[in-house]
């Protein structure tokens, strides 16, 4: 089988998810052995410019220039993978949507703000069709490998549609709520093997929310633990602001 030609692109992001590929460790050879990387700005100077089998896209879409560029990439790529929270759910860039766009431009660019057009932050799928999602901030490498395998086989990858609590429980962690700490695990999609909680941190909701959350029940739980709604909404908006755009 011919190796698929792959381009890796970045939009508004910290490029940390691309760096995760270098963090794969030993398996990086297998990963790079199974694909033919023809464009990847972070590690190589060559540009490809032709049709691609797979485009891996990091970052969210935040200005008119980015919209045009992602549309061009979409046209050239048979398969498009949204890679990392910024790409899959808008991620932390979505916090911009809390503000008036002009105000935020002035705040960042000062007097010359007019030269920097901006738009509401969007996830990649809110702009063009996305075939596969690799969630996480940063991505969880075993999940990236699982998605890559699915792409190579030509089968779908289903992001688990149940909360992080499932995987957290399998790791036998003491529930953060029992430690009197607020955690977004109960409403956040699993697939990361409760990575943060396994390492003593809380869940920040970087993977987006489950498809059918019980909002009434969640509110009752917050009330039970005496957690103000605002606090949770703020925590949720850190990564999930773009979900309001539908």
């Amino acid at each position: 089988m011919k190796k698929p030609k792959v381009g890796i692109f970045d939009f508004a992001c910290c490029e940390g998810c691309q760096l995760q590929i270098a963090n794969i460790g030993e398996d990086v050879l297998d990963v790079l052995g199974s694909i033919d990387v023809v464009e990847w700005r972070e590690v190589m100077s060559e540009k490809w410019g032709k049709n691609l089998d797979i485009a891996i896209v990091e970052g969210s879409i935040t200005n008119p220039h980015a919209v045009k560029r992602i549309q061009r990439i979409r046209k050239k790529a048979k398969i498009l993978i949204a890679y990392g929270s910024c790409a899959t759910i808008g991620g932390v860039n979505g916090m911009k949507n809390n503000f008036n766009l002009d105000d935020i431009r002035k705040y960042v660019y000062g007097d010359s703000y007019r030269f920097f057009p901006t738009e509401m932050t969007k996830a990649v799928h809110q702009t063009v069709k996305v075939d596969y999602f690799v969630n996480g901030c940063p991505v969880y490498i075993p999940e990236f490998v699982a998605v890559l395998k699915a792409v190579l086989q030509g089968v779908p990858y289903y992001v688990p549609d149940y909360p992080v609590c499932v995987e957290c429980k399998l790791n036998e962690n003491v529930c953060m709520y029992d430690r009197k700490v607020t955690c977004l695990g109960p409403v956040t999609r699993a697939g990361c093997n409760a990575w943060c909680i396994n390492n003593g941190n809380i869940c920040y909701g970087c993977r987006g929310m489950v498809s059918n959350p019980n909002e009434k029940g969640a509110q009752d739980v917050l009330a039970k633990y005496k957690i103000p709604m605002d606090l949770i909404l703020n925590k949720m908006n850190m990564y999930n602001k773009c979900r309001e755009l539908g």
Partner: peptide, 30 residues
């Protein structure tokens, strides 16, 4: 209906819940 968060904790911690899913996983070279 209004209370359950569908987190699956109750079944994961249950000593008699045994339901499982079976999946295939290929190596990267397929």
């Amino acid at each position: 209906e209004e209370r359950c968060l569908a987190c699956g904790n109750c079944t994961n911690v249950c000593p008699t819940c045994y339901c499982f899913d079976i999946r295939d996983e290929l190596e990267l070279n397929l």
